[in-house]
Nucleic acid binder design. Structure first.
Length: 573
RNA sequence: CGGGGCAUAGCGCAGCUUGGUAGCGCGUCUGGUUCGGGACCAGAAGGUCGCAGGUUCAAAUCCUGUUGCCCCGACCA
């Protein structure tokens, strides 16, 4: 492709709407343009990157026994009512009606469609297992689309669904998918971690996420630098190894005491007031779970993990109470809440199970209790892990200190079990002639998000630095002086020879000054650049520069095509 | 939905306080000079000032409403 003919409107300045690197660079480098909030057009360069990602995904899905299909984006309401999700999905689902005022959803996911599809045509265990997938646009009316392609309202997703006779079969498919996902992200060239994940609203028994490590990520992964352990912070188990704060072993329980603490509200203030570490305080949080008030109790220096709390309470909506609710239920405002003498159910983090003579609010503004001890002064419903793990805590597998990192979720795999086959009566006859529910799994990859994540991880001050596997073009040829016939002719020759080698190559034939061409080549992130300049040309050579390195190699013109071909080949292995 | 901010030429912005001919840089077009990291000179095109209403002789500017976009929190690929 000649750049003079390529539609890649690059911008010299960063559009003000873009906050994070991938959004800025994809806009600046002429990859994407916004149509409306969270909805983007993919320009030629982006389209090529997306096709490459999809190709890798397809190859790995097919290798894992998947069959590609294409399901409708427009999905009838009735199907969603069968699964009970027409209501559950709420405002996040785009809805529309036809001329007869029949309601439809723009597919946010395809469990309903595929279950009904398979249900209609699969009757026998002989037809199982079945693994179907598709790559298409998904629609989710996100509360807040943001970060360009990272969280769009329309986005490209690969979704796969497995159907098995039993859980053993599901396990096999799940493993295959897990392997396939690992190969996909490795081939794309991303630094990522597979982590244990929450099942969320989709339901099921087990789930893993594939997290691309990037500072701008919206998730936190907790991992062990020493072994394979990695988990989403949302579900990472806390309080492994020896009991935290067990220094009080052998301490005798001191008598409960009420102390005036005028104006001392925050954990920090109160700790300073009593001259004790924050860990000696009890953090008392008033939560509203499905409308019912409950108390969560943590060590003063810990954070509540809402996912764990939700699971423990088995509730749908969990909110932090407001100050007025605190007054209503506890008789005091924030800063003076405590579990002593309270009639609400108290859910305590297991870390505070050991009595320790702690300090907490007295449910009376301006007063705290000293020497509070669980069991004696209050009795929680349960001691459970309801907090976030912190860096440095021991790994549950090998006890090394844990670390954490920000990350972008690019894929997730679920064991669904029979949730949808039950709701939608997807059954088959087994060998014994008995009717059984199909056991399902579902597997997603955010394709457009993966492109953005790749940029988040591969850029420098000059622009994008694509991993070879997904670069829109592998090589760009830049003649330094567009008026110099010899340079242009040499560039044209090399261009033709590279094309013959089946290499994806851009020829910058524009009548621009060299600086412009170099800047654009760097900005759009082409991995290899062949520069044809006067000095090297006299010696019968051209320059080869790798986008990710500073060095320049001088290569004989006669062998440049095979040299580049070998280079690309060896990288693919 | 709650909180904060923005809307003026393709992109980045000024002008608004104190109403009076709509500006700057970049990009675009024409001609010329240039040509190893976003050149220079000369000329040109391009804007219902987000939209609607109001105040006024007069509104980008003041008032009211509305829409869109961005950022921070609960959702997720």
């Amino acid at each position: 492709m000649k750049t003079s003919e390529l539609f890649f409107p690059t911008l010299r300045e960063v559009p003000s709407e873009a906050e994070i690197v991938s959004h800025q660079l994809l806009l600046r480098a002429g990859y994407i343009r916004k149509a409306s909030g969270g909805v983007y057009s993919y320009l030629p360069l982006a389209n090529r990157v997306l096709k490459k990602i999809m190709q890798i995904v397809r190859e790995e899905m097919d290798m894992a026994g998947g069959q590609e299909i294409m399901m409708p984006i427009i999905q009838p309401k009735e199907l969603w009512e069968q699964s009970g999700r027409w209501e559950v999905y709420g405002d996040e689902m785009f809805r529309l009606s036809d001329r007869h005022e029949r309601l439809f959803a723009l597919g946010p996911t395809h469990e309903e469609i595929i279950t009904s599809l398979v249900n209609a045509d699969v009757y026998s265990y002989r037809d199982l297992p079945l693994l179907l997938y598709q790559i298409q646009n998904k629609y989710r009316d996100e509360i807040r689309p943001r970060f360009g392609l990272i969280r769009g309202r329309e986005f490209i997703m690969k979704d796969a669904y497995s159907f098995d006779e039993d859980y053993e079969g599901l396990e096999t498919n799940y493993q295959k998918m897990m392997d396939a996902y690992n190969r996909v992200f490795t081939r794309i060239g991303l630094r990522y971690r597979m982590v244990e994940a929450d099942n969320g609203a989709i339901g099921g028994t087990e789930s893993h996420e594939f997290m691309v490590l990037a500072e701008s990520g919206e998730n936190t992964v907790v991992y062990c630098p020493n072994c394979n352990y990695a988990s989403n912070l949302e579900i990472a188990a806390a309080g492994n190894g020896e009991k935290a704060g067990s220094a009080s072993n052998g301490t005798s329980l001191l008598p409960l005491q009420k102390t005036a603490t005028p104006g001392q509200k925050s954990i920090k203030d109160v700790a300073a007031f009593f001259k004790v570490p924050e860990a000696k305080l009890l953090k008392t949080l008033l939560l509203i779970a499905d409308g019912e008030p409950v108390i969560a109790l943590l060590r003063g220096d810990r954070e509540l993990n809402e996912i764990k709390m939700k699971r423990l309470l088995r509730c749908g909506v969990l909110l932090m109470a407001g100050d007025t609710e605190a007054k209503q239920y506890c008789g005091a405002g924030f800063g003076s809440l405590g579990p002593v003498g309270i009639s609400l159910p108290v859910y305590a983090d297991k870390e505070i199970e050991t009595p320790e003579n702690l300090i907490c609010g007295a449910n009376e503004d301006g007063f705290h209790y000293v020497n509070v001890n669980a069991g004696r002064d209050f009795t929680p419903v349960v001691f459970e892990d309801i907090r976030n793990v912190t860096d440095g805590e021991p790994c549950p597998l090998c006890s090394s200190p844990l670390a954490s990192a920000r990350s972008i979720e690019v894929g997730q795999i679920f064991k669904l079990g029979v949730k949808y086959s039950e709701a939608m009566e997807a059954v088959f006859l087994n060998k014994e002639g008995v009717s059984r529910k199909m056991v399902m799994g579902s597997y997603g990859i955010g394709v457009s998000r993966t492109m953005a994540a790749a940029v988040e991880q591969n850029y420098d001050e000059n622009g994008i630095v694509w991993p070879l596997a997904i670069a829109p073009y592998q090589v760009i040829i830049v003649p330094v002086n567009s008026k110099n016939e010899e340079q242009i002719k040499t560039a044209g020759d090399i261009y033709e020879r590279l094309l013959k080698q089946k290499i994806e190559v851009l020829f910058d034939d524009r009548d621009e000054r060299p600086g412009v061409k170099f800047k654009d080549a760097d900005l759009i992130g082409i991995p290899l650049r062949i520069t044809i300049g006067p000095k090297s040309l006299q010696a019968g050579r051209v320059e080869l520069k790798k986008r990710w390195l500073d060095e320049i190699e001088l290569i004989d013109i006669s062998v440049i095509d095979s040299y580049v071909a070998d280079l690309l080949q060896s990288d693919k292995k």
